[in-house]
Simulated assay, not measured.
Amino acid sequence: MKKEHIYPVVLTIAGFDGSGGAGIQADIKTISALGCYATSVLTALPVQNTCGVKAIHTIPTEIVQMQLQTIMEDIRPDAIKIGMVHSLELVRIIAEMLQEYPEIPVVFDPVMVATSGHRLIKEDTINEIVNTLFPLSTIITPNLDEAAVLTGAPIGSVDEMRLLGTKIMEKGCQHLLLKGGHLPTKELTSILFDQKGIIAEYTSEKIETNNRHGSGCTLSSAIAAYLAQGKKIPDAVNLAQQYVHEAIKEGADVAIGKGNGPLNHFFAPQQLLKRKAPL
C-alpha cells in the first residue's frame, strides 16, 4: 500500500520514571493522548516510585548521543521536548544536535530542583544550560523553584513573577512560561513572556490533590505536541494548560501508589492525527 500520510512527531529527551507518572513515561503518554507520535531518547535511569527517588543510574553520554543520531536520521520530529539534563557533557551533546535542526521548535523544561528543595544539577551545568540551551529553545518552562535558581531570588507573589520573569528573559530566552503552581494561593497563575515582555497570563483553579506528580513534564510535552500540530506559541501554551488542568482534575480522586500520584493523561485521548506526506 502506498504511504501517503504522516503523523505529527514529538521527540522527548528525558529521564525514566518506573512509577509511570513523570519523566519519559509521562511525556509519551501526553504526546500520545494529544494525537501525536512519540519518539524518545533516555538520558538517565532513576530508581523511583510515587514516594521518591532511591537512586539514579546515569546513561553514558556516548549512548545518549547515539540515541539522538539514530532517531534523528530516521524519524525527523516536528517538535522536541527536553526534560532533566543533569551533566555538562549532556548539555553540550544536546546543544550540538539542536544546532543542526534550527527549524524544529524546542520546549525545554529545566528541571533543577527536587521537591525536597535539593539541587539536582551542579552550578557549572546550570551555567552551561543558560548559555547554550536557553538560546536554542523556543520556550522554557521553569517552576518558581527553578526560577529562583536562575535569578538568585525567591518568588513569593504574582507581581514578583512578572518582575523576575523579565530578568530570566534577559538570559537569551525566546519565550518563557513561568509556572506559579508553588504559590500559596487558591488560583494557579502562569505567565508567558517573549522578548518584548508579557504576552499572556493564565489563571485557573488550584485543585486540592497530591496527584500532581509529573505535571511539569506533562505540560511541557503538551506544549510540544501542540507545536508539532502547527499551533503558535500562545495557542499551544493555552491548550496545554487546559489539558494539564483537566488531567489533574480527572485524576485527583484516584489512588495510585502510596505517595504523590499521577495525572490522568488519558481522560479524553485523541486518535493519531494524520496529514498528507510531503512530496
Rank of each mutant, 00 (worst) to 15 (best):
L279F: 07
L227K: 09
E96W: 02
M112S: 10
I129L: 14
L176Q: 13
K232E: 15
L68I: 14
C173K: 04
E103F: 00
A240C: 04
G214Y: 06
R162S: 04
M97G: 00
I191D: 04
E89H: 12
E96H: 12
V10H: 07
K3A: 10
D235H: 07
A55N: 14
A14S: 13
L90D: 10
I31Q: 08
G181A: 09
R119P: 10
K179G: 06
A255S: 13
E73C: 03
V254C: 06
P102Q: 05
E246H: 13
P102I: 03
A26M: 03
T115Q: 13
V10M: 06
D194M: 07
K81V: 05
I155M: 08
Q69Y: 09
A33K: 02
G156K: 13
F16G: 00
N49R: 07
P77E: 10
G214A: 06
E89L: 10
K274L: 15
M97N: 09
A228C: 07
A268T: 00
A38N: 08
M66N: 13
I94N: 11
I139G: 11
A222L: 00
P110H: 10
D159G: 03
L178D: 09
G181S: 06
G20S: 04
E170Y: 00
Q99P: 01
I223P: 02
T141D: 08
T185K: 08
L192F: 04
A222P: 03
N127S: 14
D27C: 01
E250Q: 15
A240E: 04
I104W: 08
D27M: 04
V113W: 08
G180H: 03
E201K: 04
Y7H: 15
Q67V: 04
S40L: 05
K196D: 14
D124V: 01
I80N: 04
Y7I: 03
A225F: 01
I75N: 05
T58W: 08
L163T: 14
L120I: 10
Y243S: 02
F134L: 12
T125C: 15
F16A: 11
L88R: 09
T61Q: 13
V64H: 07
M84I: 15
D159F: 02
R162W: 00
L227T: 07
S137R: 02
I155T: 11
L178G: 05
I28V: 15
I256E: 11
L279D: 12
I121W: 08
A200Q: 15
M72V: 06
L42H: 09
Q229G: 13
D109N: 10
I223V: 14
I31F: 07
L263N: 06
N210M: 10
G181K: 06
P105C: 08
L188P: 00
Q174I: 05
D78C: 00
P102Y: 05
